[in-house]
Nucleic acid binder design. Structure first.
Length: 265
DNA sequence: AATATTGTTCAGCA
DNA sequence: GTGCTGAACAATAT
């Protein structure tokens, strides 16, 4: 799940539950969930410290602490934060757990172990190192800038939307939704898109992301005219009722409607 | 049992 | 340098 909309909601969850609580102890169940840091160094850096603020860039979360550390979280394909206290149910796949002095716990869960937790020097430096592009929902990313960025690359439009070095935050599922709602085939080449195609991509990107964040990515609140719930074998197009097709783009399954999504060429 | 899976990174190639 | 594909990482669900 963790694309930009999920990570944005994760951010709010951590903000509401885990800021301003002193970290009493840390449990590392899987040290391979830590990136470039040993469990000893990780624990030593953060025990006795306190999360003070949190921010997001693309699919990454950055948590600042009182002692001026920055905790990095990336959720891979199956990661999520889970807060529990008292007799509340424990997480199923805890990899790293922060235990707070007043008895709350923040667990970094990650079934498939593709997510990472670390302590880094600074958010800005990390973004630079990873060469991440501007966040998809950054207010500075206006229509003009979006148009320029998209046109600066070649190749397939869907690959470009998912290119974290260009625009950070969009993943496979959101990109499929954007392609569906704009009626553009995922394998359309950038140079065949019109300016109004690109403007529409920008509008739908915002519309979809904002709606999914507003509804906290609740699967029950996915509108019937989204392709999201039809991303499977036997899926039917919400617009025309036709069969949903699947083609590989950028190594990922892209679900689309052959009739409603035309290849620009 | 075979196949699928929301992400990232790297090798190999055009 | 750009961009594509396929593989690898790991663990679960269908």
């Amino acid at each position: 799940m963790p694309e930009i909309t999920e990570v944005e909601v994760f951010k709010d969850t951590i903000k509401e539950t885990s800021l301003d609580r002193k970290i009493d102890s840390i449990f590392v169940d899987r040290e391979d969930a830590l990136e470039d840091i040993t469990p000893q160094a990780f624990t030593k850096a953060l025990e006795g410290d306190t999360f003070t603020s949190i921010s997001r860039h693309g699919k990454y979360l950055f948590i600042k602490t009182k002692k001026d550390h920055t905790v990095l979280m990336h959720f891979g394909m199956t990661g999520s934060p889970y807060f529990y206290e008292g007799s509340e149910p424990k997480p199923n796949y805890p990899r790293v757990t922060f235990h707070f002095e007043d008895d709350g716990n923040l667990a970094f869960e990650c079934v498939r172990m593709l997510g990472k937790v670390s302590v880094i020097d600074s958010k800005e430096q990390y973004i630079k190192e990873k060469e991440l592009g501007i966040d998809a929902l950054d207010p500075d990313l206006d229509k003009e800038m979006f148009r320029e960025l998209i046109k600066s690359s070649r190749g397939y439009i869907k690959s470009t939307l998912m290119n974290q070095q260009l625009i950070a935050g969009l993943g496979n599922v959101l990109s499929d939704e954007i392609m569906f709602q704009t009626g553009i085939h995922p394998k359309s080449k950038i140079d065949k898109l019109t300016d109004s195609d690109i403007d529409l991509l920008y509008e739908k990107m915002h519309e979809i992301c904002e709606y999914r964040i507003k509804t906290k990515n609740d699967p029950d609140k996915v509108p019937d005219d989204y392709i999201l719930n039809q991303r499977h074998e036997n899926g039917k197009c919400p617009k025309c009722g036709g069969d949903i097709k699947n083609v590989k783009v950028a190594g990922r399954s892209s679900y689309f409607c052959e009739k409603c999504q035309v290849v620009r060429q």
